[in-house]
Design a protein around this nucleic acid. Structure first.
Lengths: 153, 153
DNA sequence: TCCTCTATGTCAAAATCCTGACATGGAAGA
DNA sequence: TCTTCCATGTCAGGATTTTGACATAGAGGA
């Protein structure tokens, strides 16, 4: 359609909105907005949901590990964890047996809340996936991965 | 490589980090971080740079139009414009001749600053683009676009 | 053992961004 | 004409996130 890309362009592109970075930000912003709208009905923010999802997958993750996995700073993740802890969705020991890392775990309430939120988020992701030809999905995933790795992500 | 995707999975995926949304966020975060590092040397933030780039392409854009194009709220863009205005990189009339929209324009200083910053940002984008097979680049752009549109972006 | 290095958790301060709200200006329709 | 509706710019407040800094705990080497 709009791939009127000339061969060997002197510049990456003329129109800013045609840049990969712009498209990337647009897609990420759209996803973030859709997730925000859905998660609000479940009383969760996007970082909180991401945190619950990560802890469900890998129980015992520490604050710093969660921060790296969610692409935020330790300080930001700390307030997220505090909120989840106050809401009774996760537990964290006050002292650590090994090092300073405090392993976090989901509570049964946290697991329940995650179950509901996950359904809503998966519906959003399904809508997003449905927009790309199925035979290109795997390539899209690997390309996103390579781009992130190329920038030290 | 890692596309050990079974046919017709009951759930979109088991591992969170395999989800499209997670990859999208990872790539966007890596790009944002790399741009932040580069733009800091030019005394610009990412929203400020985006604003300059948009104004170079489409002079006379109003605050609200810039906000939509940069995926932020009008209020956020307003403070960005204020900063650029105080730095003497853009100009905005205090009164409007038609409606309430105040058209913004780059100053010569703004154009100069943009030139330097653009080189740094383009280098980052080139590194990112180099990571994906050239024959898949066009498809990647359209797929990102379709995903954003599917979510009302 | 002692020293250095790295990683973690945490605090304080600032910057950034968003939500809610309000007044103004133009457009569309009765 | 008048009225309703929408878009824009702006203000105030709060929420979120980041930057900078500090103390602590473990690993590795001299």
């Amino acid at each position: 359609m709009e791939d009127r890309a000339p061969v060997e362009p002197p510049h990456p592109a003329q129109d800013v909105t045609e840049h990969v970075g712009y498209r990337l930000k647009r897609s990420a912003a759209a996803l973030r907005g859709a997730m925000d709208r859905e998660l609000r009905e479940h009383g969760l923010t996007v970082p909180q949901y991401a945190c619950l999802e990560l802890l469900d997958e890998r129980p015992g993750l520490s604050n710093a590990e969660l921060a790296r996995a969610a692409f935020v700073t330790r300080q930001s993740m700390n307030v997220v964890l505090r909120g989840l802890q106050d809401a009774g969705l996760i537990t964290r020991p006050t002292t650590s047996d090994h090092g300073r890392a405090l392993p976090a775990h989901l509570t049964p309430e946290g697991r329940d809340r995650l179950d509901g939120a996950r359904r809503a988020v998966y519906a959003v992701e399904s809508r997003m996936i449905a927009a790309v030809p199925p035979e290109r999905l795997a390539a899209l995933l690997t390309d996103l991965d390579r781009m992130a790795s190329a920038l030290g992500g």
